[in-house]
Nucleic acid binder design. Structure first.
Length: 986
RNA sequence: UGGCCUGUAGCUCAGGUGGUUAGAGCACACGCCUGAUAAGCGUGAGGUCAGUGGUUCGAGUCCACUCAGGCCAACCA
């Protein structure tokens, strides 16, 4: 520090020159008030018919179609909906601005169980019974219910700033949609891919209906338990004469037994009864195969007083074993072989270590059975699953000797089936023990009565049967092969989606399409009860005419036509000689088939869209949902996927990374965010997050986004204020000072990142690139440096005018790039610069950055300038701390640059201006001892000094020249010139 | 239990094919400015890269396991 005299300006009374400065002036408020402003902008867009204008503007451009995965028309939006729709909106808006015709048509999924429930609930409240209401009346109420929610959700989506054809959305329940969905299914029937198989479902005997898992509640129930022998008949000589013992809580399922499951992870042994009471079921000398861990408990239950283990039995032996059904020979039935199958569901906690497997009566039983299908067929064992229990709970002909016994009565009480089975087993000498067990058991939600798992006919689509005529577009022969090929042809964001979908398609069983429900599109086929032949089908001569009938009727009446009186005559007459054996199928389609067909009834039917879609975007759960069913549906019918790209997003967690739930009270509702902060804040959150993975949201995170928003807004506001003094005259690039050219270079870099980010669906890259640019390059550097020229330079100053020109360029570029992310604020900002009734940033294209803006050499040079600048600011910070200066304008540092490269970079630059000091000296002379240096090794040392001269009353710079102008003795010469020009103007 | 995935500073994110003291923005602390002012600028302090064990001259980066979390495995969408 030298002994420079303190500036004398403090003592001199100063004039307030602020009115002579070009200070920022704007009405653009610092505080956004988004909750009030956003609805007004929506109203404006409505009024100016923005959606229609977007289409008009883009007419003839290449189409880009993001096809909307339909949300379910039930309930208010949650955060997941908001994330989903905002992402879609960012995509459609950015593609539109990239120069595509990017049309977005929102859709809704309207059929299905949840709506049935709601309507039924309303019935119950009114004391009405669903079964007494004609089905089409019930369906009408479901339709009205869905309609109402479509309206509500539509408004909620729009409030998020989502732009699209909300005046003409699609719904799966539109009559035309139902017509297409039904005829799409007919295509599967026609090509022979649809077949009638069977599968166990939860069934309520009392209500005579299938139940969903959600309609079932678990209550305590007392079951009869039995331990039963399955005599070994083949496979292992060492087990001759032994029996595999199973345990079950449902004796009535014994007639349905077709296999025994064991676990390769459990140790088994061959045991012999050494001693048992007279007349005991388990007799001395009998040999049982049991899990070692459970043998003792079994013998105790069987009242066996002594037993011995003869040998261990390996899993390899068990796998080859064949047993006889314990009722073999009863009424001439049960002659089939019972194989042993390895299953993961088998444990050695309870029972015997062997699980009685009745594929018609349990999910796991069914799965094990189906998994072994091919192997069983090779062993000569029929894989057919018997229908041992009918709708009313009676054992059928498929249970010889027990036919007519009842599992559960109309009233929901236990029938006589269990007793009869036990009696028959005992008579056959196959009982080991019996007991009772109190445990939780599924009961119907409605009747509170126990339900059963029973085999029921269902409609399936083959995954692995070669597809014959009627379908086209692919060489692959089976649905699975086609789907796998289609997955290879699809781009996935993130890439893991491909693996996930592929492994699902590889492993999935045949596609079950039928549901025994009311609110949906029917499987509009007929089945010949004598021959099993289905219409339509590969052999049927009138497939097209039949489909045309269905389609024509559904287009006018909707799927209700199928459920109306006389449907059989109406649709079948003239196609068959005798209507009598033809049974109308009343099952409806799984709603996944509905939404899986949207590409057909939306993309193909609307001229303003195209097929296939460019993008499907949904949550990662949709790998087994919409992505999956759309793929199968389209591969079955078209041979290829209905999409080119699949984008998935993760789930939204609470702030601690855990699932949101009502009970934990950690939910964030989009409605609340919108009310408190505005939709743009929510959208900024979406833009900032890595949505490919699970994201978090909460107060802290939203606050951080509000802060980012404020920074963006304030920076735009300052630019607007400054531009109030811009006359709109452009300056040629060649005439720009280096600083301006560097900013344009940076802008070009940001532009490349923005473009790449939008193209690759990486919005957080766009967000951080723009935000960092605004923070670091603009707010903290360029604007800070240029304020002097912008505020103080004379009107005529080229520097001032070029800066204004560049600020205007920066402003328009940034606002456009931000438009897809924060459409409300971007619009508000755009209109400040480009007002007009028909003006909208959303009608603009992203700017093309001129190639001449890119100047890597200049950028490199200025990075050096900034390195030196950092040393200067570091030195000034010390001065500030020591209270020698406050403002940097009080300083006039001496900068010793010890590197030739760095020194050259400063040539011909007004380095004082860049460092925002009043004066500065740059030299290559060695720095004195004690000069300030940065620890990072920059070869620059700074010796701070106070600026000499008087403080300019206008620009606050301290310069010796102040006082030398006779007219304006209290300002610098530059400021004097500015004042002179101002005076001349007046 | 199986399929797919995640775990880097308080928060949101960067960290090609393994290679110098792990980066940014925000938030935080301290200071400056008071002509972007419920603003602006500067400086600074924050990380055993979930953990353990391996491969390697060398691992946030590769491998295995463990822990924590998420989605899927519904006549739910």
């Amino acid at each position: 520090m030298t002994d420079t005299p303190a500036p004398t300006s403090e003592a001199t009374p100063t004039r307030d020159y602020s009115s002579t400065l070009n200070l920022p002036a704007t009405d653009f408020p610092m505080r956004a008030g988004l909750p009030e402003k956003e609805p007004k902008l929506i109203a404006r867009w409505d009024e100016m018919k923005l959606y229609e204008k977007l289409r008009e503007t883009a007419k003839g451009r290449e189409q880009f179609v993001l096809h909307d995965g339909p949300p379910y028309a039930n309930g208010h939006l949650h955060i997941g909906h908001a994330l989903n729709k905002i992402l879609k909106d960012i995509i459609t808006r950015s593609r539109q601005m990239m120069g595509y015709d990017s049309n977005y048509v929102p859709g809704w999924d309207c059929h299905g169980l949840p709506i049935e429930w709601k309507v039924e609930e309303e019935y119950r409240a009114k004391g009405k019974n669903k079964d007494e209401v004609p089905i089409n009346d019930f369906r009408a109420e479901c339709r009205a219910y869905a309609e109402n929610w479509v309206k509500i959700q539509s408004e909620e989506f729009r409030r998020l700033g989502v732009e699209g054809d909300f005046a003409h959305p699609y719904t799966t329940m539109a009559l035309a949609s139902e017509a297409v969905i039904a005829t799409e299914l007919l295509k599967f029937a026609t090509s022979g891919q649809l077949y009638r198989g069977s599968k166990p479902v939860m069934w309520s005997v009392v209500e005579k209906t299938a139940l969903a898992e959600a309609e079932v509640e678990y209550q305590d129930y007392q079951s009869d338990t039995i331990w039963v022998k399955f005599p070994v008949v083949a496979g292992a000589p060492e087990l001759d004469g032994a029996a595999v013992v199973i345990w079950t809580t449902t004796p009535w399922t014994i007639p349905g037994n077709r296999a025994i499951s064991y676990s390769p992870k459990i140790a088994y042994g061959l045991y012999e009864v050494a001693e048992a009471p007279e007349g005991n079921w388990a007799k001395t000398g009998e040999k049982y195969v049991l899990a070692d861990a459970l043998a003792e408990a079994v013998f105790k239950q069987a009242k066996v007083t002594a037993y011995t283990k003869l040998a261990s039995v390996s899993a390899a032996v068990l796998g080859k074993l064949t047993c006889a059904h314990p009722l073999r020979g009863l009424s001439g039935g049960y002659t089939f072989d019972v194989p042993l199958l390895a299953g993961d569901h088998v444990t050695d906690d309870t029972g015997t270590g062997f699980v009685h497997t009745a594929p018609g009566h349990g999910r796991e039983d069914f799965e094990v059975w189906m998994d072994y299908g091919r192997e069983l067929t090779e062993r000569g064992i029929s894989t057919a699953i018997p229908f041992t229990v009918d709708d009313d709970g009676f054992l059928t002909d498929a249970a010889p000797g027990l036919t007519g016994r009842r599992v559960i009565t109309d009233k929901g009480e236990k029938g006589d089936a269990n007793g009869a089975v036990i009696e028959a087993l005992a008579a056959a000498g196959m009982m080991v023990a019996r007991g009772r067990l109190k445990h939780t058991y599924p009961h119907s939600w409605r009747s509170k009565k126990p339900v059963i798992f029973r085999n029921t006919p269902q409609w399936f689509v083959y995954m692995d049967r070669p597809i014959g005529g009627g379908a086209s577009g692919s060489n692959a022969t089976t649905l699975r092969a086609r789907a796998l090929a289609a997955i290879d042809d699809t781009a996935f964001y993130p890439p893991a989606g491909q693996t996930r979908l592929r492994s699902m398609i590889e492993n999935r069983p045949d596609w079950v399409l039928s549901r025994q429900r009311a609110w949906g599109v029917p499987i509009a086929v007929f089945r010949n009860v004598d021959t099993g032949v289905v219409i339509p089908g590969p052999e049927f001569a009138h497939n097209e005419a039949y489909a045309a009938r269905i389609r024509a009727a559904f287009e006018v009446e909707g799927a209700d036509a199928w459920f109306a009186e006389g449907a059989k005559e109406r649709f079948l007459k003239g196609f068959v000689d005798d209507l009598e054996p033809w049974e109308q199928v009343t099952d409806i389609l799984d709603v996944w088939f509905d939404s899986g067909s949207t590409h057909e009834f939306v993309l193909k039917s609307r001229p303003d869209l195209k097929w296939p879609a460019d993008v499907y975007l949904e949550g990662s759960d949709q790998h087994r949902g919409w992505f999956h069913s759309s793929l199968l549906e389209s591969c079955g019918v078209n041979g290829v996927a209905p999409y080119k790209t699949v984008v998935t997003h993760g789930f939204t967690m609470a702030e601690d990374g855990r699932k949101m739930s009502k009970s934990l009270g950690n939910q964030v509702l989009p409605q609340d965010v919108i009310k408190q902060s505005g939709a743009d804040i929510l959208r900024l959150w979406v833009a900032s997050t890595d949505y490919w993975e699970d994201q978090r949201i909460g107060k802290k995170i939203l606050d951080a986004n509000s802060d980012a928003y404020r920074k963006i807004r304030n920076t735009l506001r300052w630019m607007l204020g400054t531009l109030a003094h811009y006359d709109g005259v452009a300056v040629a690039y060649a005439d720009l000072p280096e600083l301006e050219r560097v900013m344009l270079h940076k802008l070009a870099e940001v532009g490349a990142e923005v473009e790449e980010g939008y193209r690759e669906y990486d919005f957080k890259a766009v967000f951080s690139s723009v935000l960092n640019f605004m923070n670091i390059e603009l707010s903290a550097f360029y604007f800070d440096v240029r304020k002097d020229a912008l505020y103080c330079d004379p009107k005529s100053s080229l520097k001032r005018r070029t800066a204004l020109h560049v600020v205007a360029l920066l402003y328009d570029h940034l606002v456009k790039w931000l438009a897809p992310l924060i459409p409300f604020t971007a619009e508000e900002a755009w209109l400040e610069r480009h007002p007009g009734d028909t003006s909208s940033v959303h009608l603009e294209l992203f700017p093309t950055v001129p190639g001449e803006w890119t100047d890597a050499a200049l950028d490199e040079k200025w990075e050096k300038v900034k390195r030196v600048r950092r040393v200067v600011t570091g030195a000034l910070e010390i001065e500030r701390r020591e209270k020698r200066i406050g403002s940097s304008l009080e300083a006039a540092p001496m900068v010793h640059v010890e590197d030739k490269d760095l020194l050259t970079a400063l040539d011909e630059l007004d380095f004082a201006e860049i460092c925002i000091t009043s004066q500065i000296a740059v030299t290559d002379t060695p720095a004195p001892e004690g000069a300030f240096r940065l620890e990072d090794g920059t070869p620059v040392a700074v010796v701070p000094k106070l600026a000499e001269g008087r403080k300019c009353a206008r620009s606050w710079k301290i310069l010796p020249e102040v006082g030398s102008d006779p007219d304006y003795p209290d300002v610098t010469l530059r400021d004097a010139q500015a004042l002179r020009e101002l005076a001349a103007e007046a």
